[in-house]
Amino acid sequence: MAGIDVGGHGGKRSTNHEIPLIPFIDFLLCLVAFLLVTAVWSQMARINADARVPGPPQPDEPKDPPKEKQLHVEMKGDTKFQLVWKEGNTVVNTIDLDRKSVPVGNQGDYRFPDLAKKITDEWTANGTHRAASDLKLDQAVLHTDNSTPFSDVIAVIDAIYTPKREFSLGGKTDKVAAFNVTFAVN
C-alpha cells in the first residue's frame, strides 16, 4: 500500500504515514457514478429561419435596391412540389417535382432527396450569392398549407439547406447553407 516514508526509526512517535487508498478509491468511484448519472448527452441542434424583418434604415442604403431572384418552394398538396424563381413579382422559371419521401431512422422521420438534389442543381445554375466574401445569402421562401404537420415542414427546410457554399467572416472561412429560409405569409 502507498505510504510516506521519511526515514528515521527513533524511539519517538513514528513519522511514517500510510495513505488510506481504499476510502480514496471509494470516493472517486462515488464521484464517477454521480457525474455519469447527472451527465446530459444532448443530440439537439437547430435549424435556422429568418423572419426578414427590415432593420433600421442605413444612410448608405440605396432607395430602390435591385430586386433579387428568390426561390419559392411550394408544397402542393401531398403529391408534388413546385419550385418557382421570382424577381420581385415576376416569375422567371417554374419547375414541378414529384413528392417522393424516403423514410429515415425509426422515429417516423423522412427526407426528400429528389427535392434536395433539384434545389442544389437550381442554386448551382441560378444562385446569386456564391463568393465566399459575399455576406448575403440567397433567399428561399417556403409556402405550406396551414394543415401541414411540422415534421413535413422541417423535412422541406432540411432539403433547402442541402446546398452549401463557403462563407468568410473575420478571416475565417466556413461552409454554410447557400439559402436562407423564410415562410410565406399566406
Binding site: 439537439m44 441542434a45 435549424i47 435556422n48 429561419a49 423572419a51 429515415v104 431512422g105 422521420d109 427546410i157
Partner: peptide, 20 residues
C-alpha cells in the same frame, strides 16, 4: 408563433431538432 416572435423583436427564429 413565428410571426408573433418577429413582431416582438425576435426575427432570428431557430427550430430545435434532433441531429440526424
Amino acid at each position: 408563433v413565428f410571426q408573433t416572435a418577429a413582431f416582438a423583436g425576435y426575427p432570428n427564429v431557430s427550430f430545435m431538432v434532433g441531429r440526424l
